[in-house]
Design a protein around this nucleic acid. Structure first.
Lengths: 284, 284
DNA sequence: AAGATTTACGTAGTAAATTTTCAAAACATT
DNA sequence: AATGTTTTGAAAATTTACTACGTAAATCTT
């Protein structure tokens, strides 16, 4: 990106232009918010030098350069270029947590295999009933999944309580599907439920790190291998990865079901909206 | 992203400002390369009107608006420019949905203001009780929030049912805090509950698109202006943005509480893990 | 090594673009 | 219809980016 191109051309710049380049590289995001006068002052050169610098790099002038830089920064990866510590706790937080989350998803995009997704979709589209199991944080992912799949017309349930899903799993039979979600992949209760479900003939799609006990039990494993940071401050951005995988499955299923499903879903949305209004007048 | 924030606020704009908005929406990438005079001409309004339009949207002026627009476009394009169509449905899905989600978060990182976050943290750290309200998809976000804040020691609850949170809201008083979460920002039931909460003296932090009725009611508004795509196939990646904002608040609160809180949280995690094991042997 | 030539840079002025001011016009309110 | 409020554009003021030009430094010639 632009910053790299500056770095490469650093040698071919004149002394003063290099000052400008270094000033930009030193703090790109500040540069974006400055005007040409400020940048000139920071770099300790005159304004025309800045303009010449922009032209040397191939841009029309300061305006175009600044615009391109801003766009580059928007895409740039996290804190790599950012200033290390801002005084502002909040700004720093926003930056760090967003960046970490973005990295998680970038990682997911690079590593998520299409094949198990396809297999999972095959199972789900044939399933007469879909149950989502997850405990703790994964319970919320399960609820989210249920919420998404629910509108598709297939009977779906989400269980977050180990006692309950153990019982539910025992009642499953061939043609039913379970999606078991776990971030650690070692919850004994969940493993047990999956075992029960498979014994009854149901297919089990597992969302968990590979190599875990739960992963071993899967009909189809969708491995989610991310850095598990033990620092409790770290937002468990892994959860985002799980949610995105659920999105992929939900959208994939919808696509496989064709357009009449699309219509159903739209109607459901409309119904909700109307209900909202009715409900309010009812209370009011 | 920015264009969507324009779309949502379209109604609250004056006649001439709306002309500007439409002109921008009509051809965003042209706008980025124009100066204020050209845009004014295209929109058939005067230049000051364009400036006022930028300010109404919350920007400092034309320069900042243009910069943010450019950044937004830089983010929006990549996803669309991705490899056109792979034979493989699943691979294509994974790629598209991940990319879209990543874009959402990149956008969030660029536009989430630190100031309201800081204000929200101030309120939350003083609160004697925190309630999370959200309906539908946002109900899950609320549950997630509760799940995160719950371990912090402050009493927290999440309500997803309009009837219930209306009642709960009426019982709040000064020193309590509500976090109201809504992707559309126009649920009458939620607006009502927020109104009740504020009447009782509670502070209300709103996570919603700016310019919506709910946003108007906030003590502190954390505006989340992202694509609200009505196509039901589109994964509602906005939800991810909400979750990340929740993460930011949760981590921020933890940081403000200092190290003894950190310890508590670690213990809680350990306790959970042990419980898991005990529980299994109990069932087994 | 001293002058000639090229290149690099800044001062100061100019042009352009953005913003502020202010008064007129449109709109709503009573 | 009279009043106050909001919205709007013309023109002035300000800020910002760029150009022309001249001087200083560096490089090349002889």
């Amino acid at each position: 990106m632009l910053l790299d191109s500056i770095r490469t051309q650093l040698d071919s710049l004149s002394k003063s232009e290099r000052k400008v380049a270094l000033s930009v590289l030193d703090n790109p995001s500040r540069t974006v918010n400055e005007n040409i006068t400020c940048l000139a002052k920071h770099a300790q050169v005159s304004e025309p030098t800045v303009v010449r610098f922009c032209r040397t790099l191939g841009y029309d002038g300061w305006h175009e350069f600044k615009l391109k830089l801003a766009q580059g920064l928007a895409l740039a990866l996290p804190g790599l270029n950012e200033q290390p510590t801002q005084d502002d706790l909040a700004a720093d937080l926003v930056n760090k947590i967003c960046s970490r989350s973005i990295n998680t998803l970038l990682d997911l995009r690079n590593n998520l295999q299409a094949e198990p997704i396809q297999q999972a979709l095959d199972i789900l589209s044939r399933a007469s009933k879909i149950e989502f199991y997850g405990q703790g944080t994964s319970g919320i992912v399960a609820a989210d999944a249920q919420h998404k799949f629910f509108r598709s017309g297939v009977p779906t349930v989400a269980y977050a309580d180990p006692a309950i899903h153990s019982i539910a799993a025992a009642l499953l039979r061939t043609g039913d599907a379970v999606v078991a979600i776990s971030q650690r992949g070692n919850s004994p209760a969940l493993v047990r439920s999956v075992k029960l479900a498979r014994r009854g003939g149901a297919d089990v799609i597992v969302l968990a790190p590979s190599g875990t006990p739960l992963a071993e039990m899967a009909t189809v494993l969708i491995p989610i291998d991310l850095i598990f940071n033990t620092d409790p401050y770290t937002p468990i951005s892994a959860r985002l990865a799980y949610l995105v995988v659920i999105d992929v499955l939900a959208v994939g299923l919808a696509l496989q079901r064709g357009p009449e499903f699309r219509k159903k879903m739209q109607n459901a949305q409309k119904a909700l909206q109307e209900f909202d209004l009715q409900f309010d007048s009812f209370i009011g």
